[in-house]
Nucleic acid binder design. Structure first.
Lengths: 357, 357
DNA sequence: ATATAATATGCAATCGATTGTACAAATAAT
DNA sequence: ATTATTTGTACAATCGATTGCATATTATAT
């Protein structure tokens, strides 16, 4: 029916006024009388007017878009952070463009480029595992475009950051395992020494030290820490007949793999070996046994990240980079302690062929 | 160092030519000589020129943005579809804005509004469970903006759609369970009779009929089909001492819950009860036992959806809506048949307190 | 050599909203 | 009543790229 979309000019014409007045009225500019505002609003509704954000963005230089770069949206942690960010952003009338880097450096660079040319007002990002060069982020900073990093951060940039205390989370977890009587604790970590894995390793080491348990490099398994990697790491430990009584994995996925392998070898969990992961992925609750893990406070992290971002947006780039550290929470489940019903399950113990642990 | 970003005017000035020539050169317009093009490209690089998509969008009416609405990005299926869409879109130099409706009707309406005012060139969506009114989508169609629906569709709109053959997937699964000897097959479905659940139920019914097995309403459990719902449904069946030997759930999450409850009652899987889900969520591979399920061909679905979308974009809205149906794939795992190693696990059978199945 | 066609480039309007400045009307101050 | 002040609107430039049309240049045909 109606032809092209209505513009402020159409509204102005109908009202025998000008576009500038209409614009100001719509933006609730104090210089416009209430009477005119009311008229304009009414006519806008009548004409089914929808503001053209593109035009507005061009003129004002503000797109009201913010780009969020995550390694993958398909991870509870990241999608929850995004949800937290969206919450805040939408309240402020900003829209969020989610881009995935898929842990690929090239994709990440591309994606930043894309967001910049989409003229986002700022960028929130978590760095991919394989990123070792940060020029693309530096470029963002150089252009004076607000940038906030969360979780996967780097020291190579002067930028606001929001992280959890990975050190503390790991430390608490290992302390817990030790309290459960474990002394030979395997640690799954990544060869990529990005901040989160470095910190978790440090927490592991310090907890051992504090309890007078010697650090044994044989207990450290490096991998990409997906499920399959966890399987291989576990298998590797078993094959080498390394004595161990617990596993602390920097990733929930890897610990899941380890559990599978242990089960296949009829190792009892948690009686013979206790395990803990990191991340509180949903499957850790419904795995059998359920998995002790560290919750990363994803939604709060999203909110805090967004708040940091909007502070930055307001204050301009001159403000000093802020680093916020959130406390993670250790969530103790079956895999690291023996609840009653579990003890009654009575797995067949004759099948314990591997006696090295 | 460099002040404001370079524009085509800056390039033109340096080259002693005009913005229009530069614009055409950058867009590889055949009316510009190769020599000039080369010069322009070189100068663009030199000035670190970055096209202003906003300006381009305003003038051309094409934002090169496409909006994708999913109930939640935090589901393997949806994030994979998005990945498929991105693949195609990025190749064509389009960017994807992902929006999540979180299965909330209001959010969905809002999100569509937001995308429209961001002036996306079109929308790809999967409808939330609670959406029963489709005016917001109709509005998109009325504006002549390309719209394609995938997976969660509706008959209330004349719109291009991409789905898998849910009927076929369910039918195959139930046939499989019957071949395994099952005759009393519980079905978990949703009270929301959206297309996918209707079709899966139909497949279930037809498979039974074809095998001369009577349909028993007592075996149908309706819920929201999250993990907890699956637990409750299973518990409900057990409490009512309804005889059954299999569960076919329209959701992987619900079947996971069912498995937990069955285990708690020391029901042996798959010896006593066989189970199958739908969706091929990652956890179905590493659950114990691993879960038979239906793969929804998410990446291909994403690709096909994107292709359908871009066809529509090219041909204009006058083209007839297309419906594409992809074949899903039944993936048989431990939960529905007895592999060798499983038989040797020897769960304690004395604990079978519930003898009603 | 002149007309015709083909090729390459420039001019200027345009997309729709924003905003600094100018101006008119209304109100207040003298 | 006249000037000063406030209040409300209008004018016109602007953001940066695109594009129909005009024009200049070169190549081809006659």
């Amino acid at each position: 029916m109606k032809k092209g979309k209505a513009t402020i000019h159409d509204i102005a014409e109908k009202l025998n006024t000008t576009a500038s007045t209409v614009s100001r009225a719509l933006n609730n500019n104090p210089r416009i009388s209430d009477a005119t505002k009311k008229q304009v609003l009414k006519m806008a509704k009548q004409l089914n007017y929808q503001p053209n954000n593109i035009a507005s963005a061009l003129r004002s230089g503000k797109s009201k878009l913010i780009g969020v770069v995550v390694p993958t949206a398909n991870r509870n942690f990241f999608s929850s952070v995004v949800r937290g960010i969206e919450e805040i952003a939408n309240n402020l009338n900003y829209k969020v463009i989610i881009s995935q880097s898929y842990e690929e450096y090239d994709k990440e660079v591309d994606t930043i480029e894309t967001l910049l040319s989409a003229r986002v007002d700022g960028i929130i990002a978590s760095i991919g595992k394989n990123t070792e060069n940060f020029e693309h982020f530096q470029k963002v900073l150089d252009k004076g475009i607000p940038l906030v990093l969360f979780d996967r951060i780097t020291d190579h940039l002067e930028v606001s950051q929001v992280v959890i205390d990975d050190y503390y989370g790991a430390y608490q977890t290992v302390q817990h395992l030790i309290k459960q009587g474990c002394k030979r604790i395997v640690h799954f970590t990544s060869p990529k020494k990005i901040n989160i894995y470095k910190e978790r390793l440090r927490g592991y080491e310090d907890a051992l030290k504090e309890n007078g348990i010697p650090f044994d490099p044989l207990l450290i398994e490096e991998s990409n820490m997906q499920l399959e990697d966890g399987r291989q790491s576990m298998q590797h430990i078993l094959d080498k007949k390394i004595h161990f009584d617990a596993v602390f994995s920097a990733s929930d996925y890897a610990v899941m793999g380890a559990i599978q392998v242990l089960k296949e070898h009829h190792v009892r969990i948690p009686q013979d070996v206790k395990l803990a992961g990191f991340g509180n992925e949903p499957f850790t609750t419904f795995s059998d046994p359920s998995i002790t893990t560290v919750d990363q406070k994803s939604i709060p992290m999203g909110r805090v990240t967004a708040e940091t971002f909007f502070d930055l947006l307001k204050s301009g780039t001159n403000s000093v980079p802020q680093k916020t550290v959130l406390k993670p929470e250790l969530i103790i489940r079956q895999s690291s302690q023996s609840p009653e019903e579990y003890k009654t399950l009575n797995f067949d113990q004759n099948d314990l062929t591997n006696s090295s642990y």
